[in-house]
């Protein structure tokens, strides 16, 4: 464990908490993409199956359980409890166009052709594009509540911090995983436009308005 990965995990945890608080407090999931939340649940489920047979550390196990519970809890809040506030008309990204290519690519480019390895690779590829429905929704509505933009900033920062973690581990432990690194860079690049808007607007107290 290194400071970059710890900060990244905490940023990720904070993002998930911000989202749950936002939905619970405002009793509304307006502006949130249910499609992205479904993709995140698929990502965590396919990646954390090793909870059954691999124990790495209490921290690792607890965080995986928290991420799984929070992602399914968010889906429950969005599609059941506060279903009436779900923006079904704008949340129209075809997630099958993200899941299928990630699955095909995982079968072709992987470290080993074994079930758990393929599922892990699929989850890495899918996570890199899982935020697209959310960014698509924000661009369609043209704006986002400031708490939603804080959620997105934390979520984008988590994988950006992981990139520093991979650089650190390359020099400190002479290890690297190209699949995770390439997908992590793609994932972070997708946030760049949002990061720019967040830093130039939201941090100045303005609302996040996308240029129409």
């Amino acid at each position: 464990m290194n400071i970059f990965r710890l900060l990244g995990d905490l940023s990720h945890l904070l993002a998930i908490i911000i989202l749950l608080v936002k939905i619970w407090k405002t009793r509304s999931c307006a502006g949130i993409s249910g499609k992205s939340q479904i993709l995140f649940a698929v990502v965590y489920t396919s990646r954390y199956l090793d909870l059954i047979n691999a124990f790495i550390s209490p921290y690792n196990t607890i965080m995986k359980i928290v991420f799984l519970a929070a992602s399914y809890g968010t889906i429950y809040l969005m599609y059941m409890k506060f279903k009436a506030t779900y923006d079904v008309n704008h949340d129209t990204f075809r997630i099958e166009f993200l899941i299928a290519p990630a699955a095909v690519l995982a079968l072709i480019v992987n470290h080993a052709f074994e079930p758990l390895e393929i599922l892990w690779t699929f989850s890495i590829y899918l996570e890199s594009v899982a935020i697209l429905p959310q960014l698509f929704l924000v661009s369609k509505t043209g704006e986002a509540e400031s708490i939603t933009s804080h959620y997105l900033f934390m979520l984008g920062s988590y994988r950006a911090l992981y990139i520093f973690n991979w650089i650190y581990r390359y020099y400190a432990e002479n290890h690297y995983d190209l699949i995770a690194i390439v997908a992590g860079i793609v994932q972070t690049v997708l946030y760049c436009d949002f990061f720019y808007l967040y830093i130039t607007k939201v941090l100045k107290g303005k609302k996040l308005q996308l240029p129409a």
């Binding site: 990965r5 995990d9 990720h12 090793d50 691999a54 790495i56 550390s57 690792n60 965080m63 995986k64 991420f67 470290h111 080993a112 390895e117 892990w120 992981y162 973690n165 581990r169 432990e173 290890h175 690297y176 995983d177 190209l178 699949i179 995770a180």
Partner: peptide, 10 residues
């Protein structure tokens, strides 16, 4: 072997 490294990451 490089793959075991990322399996200790979330």
């Amino acid at each position: 072997h490089q793959t075991n490294i990322s399996k200790d990451e979330l």
